[in-house]
Design a protein around this nucleic acid. Structure first.
Lengths: 302, 302
DNA sequence: TGGCCTGATATCTCTAGGCGTATGGAGCGC
DNA sequence: GCGCTCCATACGCCTAGAGATATCAGGCCA
């Protein structure tokens, strides 16, 4: 790649003149007087080393040399205009792509609304969504593998990461509608001690899993896990069949199955936090935009 | 098409820095000191409105914005470099295309050598060859439908055209080897009065045709045309079969058939002229080159 | 802590070039 | 011949920008 020798204003003048084939009109289109245009063309011809236009009295025409240069000049100008526009779009956050990690348990709560709102505001932005648990999200943020994390039970000691709580929700008991406790408005945790549990496998969400089993332990019993299911829908479905009960973040109420009842638990102090995480030093306006979207459209609180 | 805002030197600096990702090295490759490079990049970033590089201590990296701009910048630069080279090639006559009209009777004489030599010297030039008789060539030169004409019996009164004689050749009698006159070294035109003639149709080359029949008339007889043939090879082949005799420009000797004899005619004053014609005001270097080629490689004189 | 590397800043110079007005000069039509 | 159109030429002005040198500031390593 060598140093370019053709100033863009001259190329611009050249292209316009090639379209108008009239110095006066071309100068008018360029918004300048005619003599400067003559100079521009002259300078360009000097640089190329050959005439680009034949000025026969009465008509201006492109020479073969000019005809050869024209498409290149035109492409260069449009490339630059388009490239500049695209770069500005990316720079201002109207385009680009954003990689978001999210906890599986959010797929039915904050995530859909967030994606919907964000896409409506920034339709040019490609969103790359991947399901990850908390620890891998933290690692991926440091790796710059993702730009945004949506996770449960955020760690407290991450100096390089920004963290903001998106949702803090209590737990609910998930019961078959036929279960005796379903008759009560609230359920004491200890009352679940004898029921078999249906839970997500610990590997899917260790923080949440540990918090749930921790709640049971605090209530004085160890949950008897009868069955694992990787998705909350499945958990509810299994509860509906009477296989057992479960404990889940309150947003699970979104899953409406007629054979399943959700009941507040007591004590109700235990809550699970959902946070958004990002790199503090991330300059991308897309991150800012996403955080703003998250702030302006607070997810429904169940 | 709007006025471009990105000076090419800055784009060049940008591309080089994007490749080197190191201000010092990039500046060295550009042949400038490092501070000016920093300035170039800064100016470009000001114009774009966003950072193009992230300068973390220790490493320079492209931002997404810069990554978006890079391909456009690269394409614009190479387009211009290539376009400029192509335009210069056309301007200097190393490329382009040249439209040549030629008389059919030259297809076996001046034309092959001319094309061969010209193509060897200017392999980048596309030659557009079309067979035309004299009058259409003159018209096509005025129309700018062709750039070069190779014609017989050029007109004298063409002020706008340049004309140069390429070849001036006598006529020869074309005889079957068994013909009594073939025993002589030279043939008097009148001796052909009783033989049937094989000639090109007048439409193929009126000037030449008229000149041949004119020769006969001058010698006191009207040729009995027994057969027409559109190509000289065919004429010779028909003569070989004994169908008749012919009169032809001497360069026809190139066609070697064992049953055909070529004999000088007397009086030998009659000659046919082949000329090259071009527009005097034609600026194209290709025309000059072709004329030079024609001058430097004189066609074989039979 | 003191070099060293790397990039940013400050300041200066110089010129290419972009634009204007005024003018010249060739064709062309009346 | 006169005026009109259209392009070129001739200055003159002025800014952008490309380049240099000198210096500063932050990380890194010994």
């Amino acid at each position: 790649m060598e140093r370019p020798e053709l100033p863009l204003p001259q190329l611009h003048a050249f292209v316009v003149l090639a379209e108008e084939l009239h110095f006066g009109h071309a100068a008018a289109r360029l918004g300048i007087a005619q003599p400067p245009l003559s100079q521009q063309i002259r300078r360009l011809e000097d640089k190329v080393g050959h005439a680009l236009f034949s000025r026969e009295p009465g008509r201006v025409m492109l020479t073969p040399t000019g005809l050869e240069l024209l498409p290149a000049a035109r492409r260069a100008l449009t490339d630059l205009a388009d490239g500049l526009a695209a770069a500005r779009a990316v720079g201002s956050g109207r385009a680009g792509h954003l990689r978001i990690g999210f906890a599986a348990s959010l797929a039915l709560t904050v995530l859909p609304g967030l994606l919907f709102n964000f896409r409506q505001r920034f339709p040019g932005v490609h969103l790359d969504i991947r399901e990850m648990t908390t620890a891998p999200q933290i690692a991926a943020l440091h790796d710059k593998t993702i730009d945004i994390g949506l996770l449960r039970e955020p760690p407290a000691d991450e100096a390089e990461l920004g963290l903001r709580t998106v949702l803090s929700e209590p737990f609910v008991a998930v019961l078959p509608a036929t279960h005796p406790l379903a008759a009560q408005r609230t359920v004491k945790l200890a009352q679940l001690a004898d029921s078999p549990f249906v839970l997500l496998p610990r590997a899917v969400g260790p923080q949440l899993h540990d918090q749930i089993t921790g709640l049971c332990t605090a209530a004085g019993f160890t949950p008897q896990i009868a069955q694992h299911a990787v998705e909350w829908q499945t958990v509810c479905a299994l509860v509906e069949t009477g296989l057992g009960v479960s404990l889940a973040p309150a947003s699970i109420r979104r899953i409406r199955l007629k054979g399943v009842a959700f009941r507040r638990i007591e004590p109700s102090t235990a809550r699970t936090r959902v946070a958004v995480a990002w790199r503090r030093d991330d300059q991308s306006p897309l991150v800012t935009h996403l955080l703003a979207t998250l702030g302006q459209d607070p997810p429904d609180r169940p």
